[in-house]
Write a protein that binds this DNA or RNA. Structure first.
Lengths: 241, 241
DNA sequence: TAAATAGTGTCTCTAAGACATTATTTG
DNA sequence: CAAATAATGTCTTAGAGACACTATTTA
């Protein structure tokens, strides 16, 4: 090696994922169960999926996040962004550690939870509207990481098209509106919602309708664009005067 | 130690800072010069200030960022937020490395650049409006980190009160508007700007005026609030129709 | 009084909020 | 037809954009 690396002791580095979907009319996050062995911290506790960076096989942080995502869900999510880094002396009993948290959105149908191989038991945990996490303790500081991810999601939903990534490829405008309402925890005006979505040129009509027990609804899909759309205004409810 | 840590090799971890101010009617970022020794990469190149985490003395990432900030500028900045983490096998010739980048805003007057002790030569580098960085090569991938920081700053300035942190404690509304214009690279409407700022209850009048060669301007300061204000709409210019 | 910048007023326009109304299906 | 949800229309309102106009200082 050409350069000397300094004598600083290196922290542990992991990547964790907050993977969200909408199921059963509620926001949900994917949790995995930690192994039940005495030499691992928090045995049997539920945690966000993640783990150590493997500097042999991961060429960068995003690649590591994608690998973990693939291991847990078996799919490529339509949306993956970095949330941030948490590092401290206290957060892991094994020593000074840093975790890079990524934040993924996916349709509920795409998930195939696999318990086996190096993946432990996994489940979707419900996040009630108004709550900032699941109603249980999580391993490490994962409750805090999850709260930050939920806050980011709720914040961005006010002015972006993110909820579209929580739905299956084909959806109706009512379903999209419902996804917004579930995350925001408040009803939106149908008329304003629809003009906003249509003016943004976000979605395109499909030559199909969803038929249920009443008037059929037009099906749409996202226009081919990888980037989410940013609306110029938030969905703020009129203040009482 | 109670737990076994796994056999993964640990990456190098650093914290870097993008410290912005407004000076000479322009946005500027603080750069430091790397040491001129053969066992350090990028000798004499300019870089964002930063360095290795010291897990002996830094209790968490933010503390580490604050320590580096203090070392470089000698002040506590009024605004410091995490920008994100960059990690890859290639970004540092010494091996797989991660940097956590923080993003600070400060008034120009507060800075006292110190070359000496463990701080190398330092200077403010101008960022022209429209450009995504300084017009020169930087060490490591710092040009990319800086471009991301500038993009985040420009994006947030559209809908937040961040530019107020770039000004000295007392300022006029014209100076605040000018800070917005410098970062956004376009003029704003004076009337709309003033009503927006006043309606947000962001600033408070001081019993003083700034006297120059013409009509004196009312001086204001930020109301005591640590959090930046988020406006419900962006400053988007009317589209040509 | 001229120059310069501070600060206000007026009119328009866009898009959201509130809420009513019409449309289209099944049972 | 009733029930249910889809989809559209109308009116109001908040706040930005454009731009003119007034105000207050120094030279």
């Amino acid at each position: 090696m050409k350069y000397r690396t300094r004598d600083f002791e290196r922290p542990l580095v992991t990547v964790d994922l907050a993977i969200f979907t909408v199921r059963d009319d509620s926001l949900a996050v994917l949790l995995v169960q930690r192994p039940d062995t005495a030499d691992e911290p928090f045995p049997r506790a539920w945690a966000l999926p993640g783990g150590f960076i493997d500097i042999e096989c991961d060429s960068d942080l995003l690649a590591c996040a994608r690998r973990k995502l693939k291991e847990k869900t078996g799919v490529v999510t339509p949306y993956l962004e970095q949330l941030g880094g948490w590092g401290s002396r206290k957060r892991d009993p094994r020593g000074w550690s840093i975790t890079q948290v990524y934040f993924a959105l996916m349709p509920s149908v795409d998930v195939e939870l696999r318990a086996g191989a190096n993946a432990a038991a996994a489940r979707w945990a419900r996040i009630d509207s108004g709550a900032d996490g699941v109603g249980e303790k999580l391993a490490f500081d994962h409750a805090g990481l999850l709260a930050a991810a939920v806050a980011r999601l709720r914040g961005k939903v006010e002015y972006t098209s993110l909820p579209a990534y929580l739905l299956p490829e084909e959806f109706t405008l009512s379903e999209l509106q419902r996804a917004y309402e579930i995350i925001l925890g408040r009803p939106l005006e149908k008329s304003a919602f629809r003009t906003r979505v249509e003016d943004a040129n976000l979605v395109e009509k499909l030559p199909r309708q969803r038929r249920t027990t009443n008037r059929p609804a037009q099906l749409y899909r996202l226009r081919e664009r990888s980037e989410p759309f940013f609306f110029p205004r938030t969905f703020s409810p009129r203040e009482a005067s």
